[in-house]
Write a protein that binds this DNA or RNA. Structure first.
Lengths: 262, 262
DNA sequence: CTTGCCCACTCGTCTATACGAGTATGCATG
DNA sequence: CATGCATACTCGTATAGACGAGTGGGCAAG
């Protein structure tokens, strides 16, 4: 247990009314911000800090837990506490559903990830008929049952997004949309072939902390929120033909929209 | 210290390899999800749970800290731990900058909040010239200095959003845009009067955990992420005439966009 | 050289205790 | 009745100790 390089971290201010564990967290945070520790670097161990500050181990752990909650660091059992690297982000532009992007055979996700040089995967594919939730039913116009298409998207082995599409049975049942592989251009291409020419989409965006289930399927580190996006697709007759419910790891995404000023 | 109503919470499973504090958190979470506790309800005190489960206080506190991290509950010193109420959300539609909304005298925020029956406020108004950050400079096209307009928005006394607009000095200096009150229709109306007819906006959206400073200015409860929105306004000549950097309390907002399918 | 074990170091979980500080309530005092 | 204090309850902070479990390096045996 080598002593901490002096000057790396300061001393505590016993006269301060700021709690000791907060002071320690502040100093670590500042050291990270100032670049004393870089992404992926190992922070001093709990034992190091116990010795350096002369406090008990629980106090140090308390400090770490603050930084974890902020998403700044993550602990690895048996190894140490590390500065959390910012993962590469995926940019979603608002024209990502434009018809011209729908021509080729591969899905938008695959094409885009390949172009960005990362390795895309889709798994947990599940297609089945089920009872519509209240919310989905309201959005699709009072349908009882729907076709649900679930899938998880991964980039370089890391899950980044979990999405479920809901479609009214009278549209989707018996079509290729009900097959695991919906064919080139995805379900939007199939919908248009079926006569539902798409007119516009509505997207609702929320951000919140993940549920335990979401932590699991997206393998989220603590302190990482999710972006919850609900998209409704409307055809030219004004009918809602699909609702897509997407939960994204917030640290992996930047959403981008272009709005007319008219 | 009245005993806990039996049946409200279950027992621990000593054979489970799930940590005790997680089991307790699970049971509390489930009880909340099932509606055994409603928004604003007080959960059993730490002492109650210590007695009920026969564990130490730190273990119970550990459970609570999980739920706090999820944004499910919040603790009040001297009172207890409560189920966090879902605050009313503000919906931001993608047409909120349409020209027709810019006619009246009051700001969009005030009009909209009044209509929703809540009491809007704007404070911390600050207008000054300053050095442009790298990011802002890049977005505005390599300007050195900018006019910055900072303000905080509150609904019913609660801060919900903190925004800063940056404008190139050659556009804003000496105009009403540089005054604390930009006049009816806001700075977008002034920009158009100055000959910068607006063509479109670009919005970039991220979600992340707040910095300590953001926790303070937005008075955020723990477990509440922020939505970080960066909007760039372009005039008909393709020039970026304003960058607006907005940090919103994520539990107070739903963003809504409408996209053409073309 | 390879295999396998031991050991040191790491964080994870849990107990027990202590005192501080904010809140609410009831009771005694004025 | 009103004021103010005592008190009990709440969570906040901190200490000290114990054992468990994952990781990785070194060393000894094969």
């Amino acid at each position: 247990m080598s002593p901490l390089p002096s000057g790396l971290l300061g001393d505590l201010d016993p006269t301060s009314d700021r709690a000791v564990f907060r002071q320690i967290a502040d100093q670590l945070r500042e050291a990270i911000d100032r670049g004393r520790f870089h992404e992926g670097d190992k922070l001093p161990s709990e034992a190091d800090l116990v010795e350096h500050y002369g406090v008990s181990r629980m106090t140090v752990r308390n400090s770490f837990s603050i930084l974890q909650g902020e998403g700044l660091v993550h602990a690895e059992h048996g190894k140490g506490v590390f500065v959390r690297p910012r993962p590469p982000v995926r940019r979603l532009a608002s024209d990502r559903f434009a018809r011209r992007h729908r021509e080729q055979g591969k899905s938008a996700f695959i094409v885009e990830a390949d172009a960005a040089g990362s390795h895309p995967q889709v798994d947990s594919l599940e297609v089945k008929e089920e009872k519509a939730s209240t919310d989905v039913s309201a959005r699709l116009g009072s349908v009882r049952r729907v076709l649900a298409r679930r899938r998880r998207y991964l980039l370089d082995g890391r899950p980044v997004e979990f999405a479920t599409s809901y479609l009214p049975l009278d549209i989707a049942r018996g079509t290729q949309i009900a097959e695991p592989n919906p064919g080139p251009g995805g379900i939007y291409a199939r919908l248009e072939e079926l006569g539902h020419r798409l007119n516009h989409f509505e997207e609702e965006i929320r951000a919140r902390m993940p549920s335990p289930a979401e932590v699991k399927t997206l393998r989220l580190a603590s302190g990482v929120p999710v972006i919850h996006l609900i998209r409704t697709a409307f055809d030219t007759e004004g009918r809602a033909v699909e609702v897509c419910d997407t939960v994204m790891a917030a640290d992996a995404y930047v959403l981008s929209y272009q709005l007319p000023a008219t």
